[in-house]
Design a protein around this nucleic acid. Structure first.
Lengths: 150, 150
DNA sequence: GTTGAGTCTGTAGTCAGGTACGGAAGTAAG
DNA sequence: CTTACTTCCGTACCTGACTACAGACTCAAC
């Protein structure tokens, strides 16, 4: 079944992905489009499957598809230092995220505990707290929002 | 400056948000649209500002705008148990995320360390590992992707 | 030889959380 | 009174990672 020369549908099944996802990766240049025999159907081999595994592993580590493109350019293994730089940056990002999620956890946990103990249903500590500052950081910087505001 | 009866621009400045963002919240029903004096300009007061603070605090705790809508319906403080349920669910989510980020951290940290020590630049352990399984879980479930695959 | 499933191609839609823009009308300063 | 900035309103666009669908074609089974 995992023989070389399978159709995209078989490839998708083995890789546990939708066909459309593979095509999408092809459009983004992450996966090669094999030559099509005249009036026929494209066939995929093990290297295509390996590519999909690579992509999924990297995604699981938090790399975006753009970053995975970069990684794939280093795939021959001769650019170890660049690959390491990418991984280090990602490690930094991951630690950052963990830190802020822990802050959230702490705050939420406090709220829930205080709420559980509150006897006065008229003043819910959760709702109440949301009106305060909660010690939240400067500004959310996500979705590429720039910091400058004229 | 933080007087009542400010324009949307002033409100935006104080809340450190873009005007467009406030309008967007209005379209989503998160922020009230004050009545417009005939042929005039709408004015906002402290309660609008409080609303924006509420939204931002809740966002910081990881609530989506939809969830914030729900929270806002409980704003009178008489639905403490519902608010607590939402907060508890969110706490669970946050802990889940922390757990999987820690997995990522562990894996990335290992990769980076092994890479640092590798003397053979022909075989970068990072690139190499991405071809293996990395012990990644079943399937990414994000963006509302369903688990079923025909 | 027909049926039904799979493939190919291109384009469009989804979700979240905004951001941008165009044109008309109002407003503040000089 | 003019100039320059805001506001208002609607609509369109953005990112990221897909997902869906239409219409033509190909392929394998019966």
């Amino acid at each position: 079944m995992t023989n070389n020369m399978m159709t995209i549908g078989t490839l998708a099944k083995i890789a546990d992905m939708h066909v459309e996802t593979i095509r999408y990766y092809q459009r983004r240049g992450l996966v090669a489009v094999p030559a099509k025999p005249y009036g026929g159907i494209r066939r995929y081999d093990e290297t295509a499957l390996a590519r999909l595994h690579f992509i999924r592993s990297a995604q699981w580590l938090g790399f975006s598809l753009d970053e995975i493109s970069e990684l794939l350019e280093l795939e021959d293994g001769t650019h170890c230092d660049e690959a390491r730089a990418l991984a280090e940056q990602k490690l930094k990002d991951v630690r950052q995220k963990i830190a802020s999620l822990k802050q959230m956890e702490f705050t939420l946990d406090n709220l829930v505990k205080r709420c559980r103990c509150s006897e006065d249903p008229q003043q819910c500590p959760i709702i109440h707290s949301l009106h305060g500052k909660l010690g939240l950081p400067a500004r959310r910087v996500e979705h590429g929002v720039q910091e400058e505001s004229q």
